[in-house]
């Protein structure tokens, strides 16, 4: 029972971490290796607003979400757009930006365990003999709501449909008057906001530390690769797969192996089914 509940919590967390990454990759074919740093930055901005400037929690969250969206868009608009299509340069450049942000933050004083965000709701509840605190339950709820909202956004709004069109066939989208560069900027902004949302929901459970940035990046990449890059349903299913696998290894082998599971999952997936568990066959040729 414990494994079931914490497995679900962990899986939803992973899905949250990965959604922004898979969104950006799905739309603009850009592996955004700065994803983890956007995640940490959101947490840090919120912390600054909340603890240093005394802004109310909800307002602080909104401001930092808007800011991180702008950061994501600016990153694409000013830097990454110049190397669009050169996939290796994209990886190296976005990874370098992410590194610069993370290590810059670490230099700027983000270290130790003093940076925390308050949980949304205190207290805990007893579910069938397992003690779960309210915030973890909220994570599940919010995660489900966010995924639902994203689905509605993509399938029911004009902008969402335009993004989807870009993802499916860029040239066809261009002929229908969808500006691919603008859409890519939008997707980066949205990806930033998704990373920010994940940070706001998940960070109150722990400290805001630079390492979280690398951790989130690894997890996001793991989930997306196992699920098949650019496939959303795949990403969510893969999040559950890896999430439960991690909880099992923690229960039986020890917490050290948590990251090992994710890394092994990436390697095994790429070796055995390079297009991911739910990826399309077409992409196989590009990978192998």
């Amino acid at each position: 029972m414990e494994i079931l509940i914490y497995g679900i919590v962990n899986s939803v967390s992973l899905a949250l971490m990965a959604l922004g990454f898979t969104l950006v990759y799905g739309v603009s074919r850009l592996p955004n290796f700065a994803h983890g740093s956007l995640y940490v930055t959101t947490g840090f901005i919120t912390w600054l607003l909340l603890q240093r400037l005394g802004v109310p929690y909800l307002v602080a969250m909104l401001i930092s979400l808007v800011l991180i969206g702008v950061v994501g868009a600016a990153m694409y608009h000013f830097i990454l757009v110049r190397i669009r299509g050169m996939s290796i340069s994209e990886i190296i450049a976005s990874y370098a930006i992410g590194l610069a942000i993370l290590e810059g933050l670490r230099w700027g004083g983000l270290k130790g365990t003093t940076h925390t965000l308050p949980v949304f709701a205190n207290g805990s509840v007893d579910i069938l003999g397992v003690v779960v605190d309210y915030h973890r339950l909220l994570v599940i709820l919010l995660g489900a709501i966010l995924v639902g909202l994203l689905w509605v956004f993509v399938n029911r709004t004009r902008l969402g449909l335009a993004l989807k069109g870009m993802a499916q066939d860029e040239r066809a989208a261009l002929t229908l008057g969808i500006d691919s560069d603008r859409m890519a900027v939008m997707s980066m902004a949205l990806g930033g906001v998704m990373a920010g949302l994940a940070a706001l929901v998940l960070l109150p459970l722990g400290n805001i530390v630079v390492e979280a940035g690398y951790h989130v990046l690894i997890m996001a990449v793991a989930v997306c690769i196992v699920g098949g890059l650019g496939s959303w349903t795949g990403a969510i299913l893969a999040a559950f797969l890896i999430g439960f696998a991690q909880i099992f290894t923690v229960a039986w082998l020890g917490p050290h192996f948590q990251v090992v599971v994710a890394l092994l999952a990436i390697i095994l997936t790429l070796i055995s089914r390079p297009s991911g568990l739910f990826g399309r066959q077409k992409e196989l040729e590009e990978r192998v």
Binding site: P31, S87, I225, I266, P274, R287
Partner: peptide, 14 residues
């Protein structure tokens, strides 16, 4: 060795 069939971005990630 097992990763050698991979190309481009995928080898980079692994």
């Amino acid at each position: 060795w097992p990763c050698l069939p991979l190309r481009g971005v995928y080898f980079a990630i692994v």
